[in-house]
Design a protein around this nucleic acid. Structure first.
Length: 308
RNA sequence: CGCGGGGUGGUGAAAUGGUAUCAUUUAGGGCCCAUAACCCUGAGUUUCAGGUUCGAAUCCUGACCCCGCAA
């Protein structure tokens, strides 16, 4: 059976790794061409391409939907698996005869769109899941083959959630593969329950200190490593890598949101719209990541200034 | 050659040509019912290779490494 795997994300990479472990052989991987990346603008193959090379899976580098159409037309694969591919596949391509299966890291119809994992963490969901569905021309809209739930613990971070969901997604696909050949039952999504997620930008990670510490702390977990949660101190970029919420008692001093205090155990505490955010790990522009305790050993004078 | 910051005790930072300093750490001692608190004493550092200089962490050249932005 010919299976093509199309993805451009780390999630896709992890799913394909899981499939490899489950002895599912992919006929071809479709991913974006090498991009200029990092300092120095060196061209670097995307992780999924490297994965393909390592495991002797043919790669097709595709960066537009016309080229994608041609590849699908030529290959005549039985199944095309798509996991956060980044291009919207038109009906013309979907009706070429291959079965298009999407692995989406949320419990559809909740969290359609590009950032389901981040959104569920920001919303404080206790559980999420992964959905296997047939694709149609609308985004994350097709009939559902099956779903798996994944429990999110209290302090789950993006990368951990992504890994859990990718593994569960790989398992789910592996399990359903035998019946995908035949006529498969699939349940249409309940349209009235659909919610959508938005694309994140670098700006999404800019912290608004008027928000509550609870929300900011969730964003710290959801948005790292990208776009990262950042703020400015003395005109320099400061990334918040790890944080906690500290409840504010009534007799605690209360200042403008963004103001820095010395917290318990020599950590950095920031006044937010509601309660304090305890910064545990941070990174100043041009510097290595440090714990806030270490950071304060040489930067104690920062206490009292305000983040913006 | 996309733009930029940086490399100083184990860790985080000062010192911009003249005795390398501070915090933390660590060893020992003191105080105390007790302590991660407080006091005293000690330990430990300029990434590497050249160059300029009476003298370099500091200025110049080269190498290696780390990081922010942008993509």
């Amino acid at each position: 059976m010919k299976i093509i795997f199309a993805s451009n994300s780390n999630f896709g990479l992890m799913v394909s790794e899981k499939l490899l472990k489950s002895k599912i052989s992919l006929t071809k991987i479709i991913t974006f061409p090498d991009k200029k990346i990092g300092r120095g603008q060196k061209k670097e193959p995307l992780p999924l391409k490297k994965f393909g090379i390592r495991n002797n899976i043919p790669i097709e580098e595709v960066d537009n939907i016309i080229h994608f159409h041609d590849v699908i037309e030529k290959e005549k694969a039985d199944i095309v698996v798509v996991a956060s591919f980044g291009l919207i596949i038109p009906k013309k391509t979907l009706s070429l005869g291959s079965k298009f299966i999407n692995i989406h890291p949320s419990l559809l119809p909740k969290y359609r769109g590009p950032t389901p994992i981040q959104t569920s963490i920001v919303n404080g969901d206790q559980k999420s899941g992964v959905t296997l569905l047939f694709m149609d021309e609308k985004i994350d809209h097709g009939p559902i083959i099956d779903q798996r739930k994944v429990i999110f613990h209290q302090k789950i971070k993006y990368e951990e959630a992504e890994k859990l969901l990718a593994q569960e997604g790989g398992d789910l696909f592996t399990e359903k593969l035998p019946i995908l050949k035949e006529k498969t039952n699939a349940t249409p999504q309940r349209e009235e329950e659909a919610t959508y997620t938005n694309l994140l930008t670098k700006r999404s990670g800019l912290i608004n200190w008027n928000e509550s510490a609870k929300i900011i702390e969730r964003k710290v977990r959801a948005y790292n490593p990208w776009p990262g949660t950042h703020t400015k101190v003395n005109c320099k970029n400061l990334k918040i890598l790890e944080a906690d919420v500290q409840l504010q008692t009534e007799n605690c001093p209360s200042g403008v949101p963004g103001k820095l205090y010395l917290g318990t155990n020599n950590t950095l505490a920031v006044q937010t719209g509601k309660n304090f955010l305890l910064i545990k790990k941070l990174q100043l522009e041009g510097k290595n990541p440090t714990t806030s305790k270490e950071f304060l050993q040489g930067n104690i004078s920062i206490i009292g200034s305000t983040l913006s």
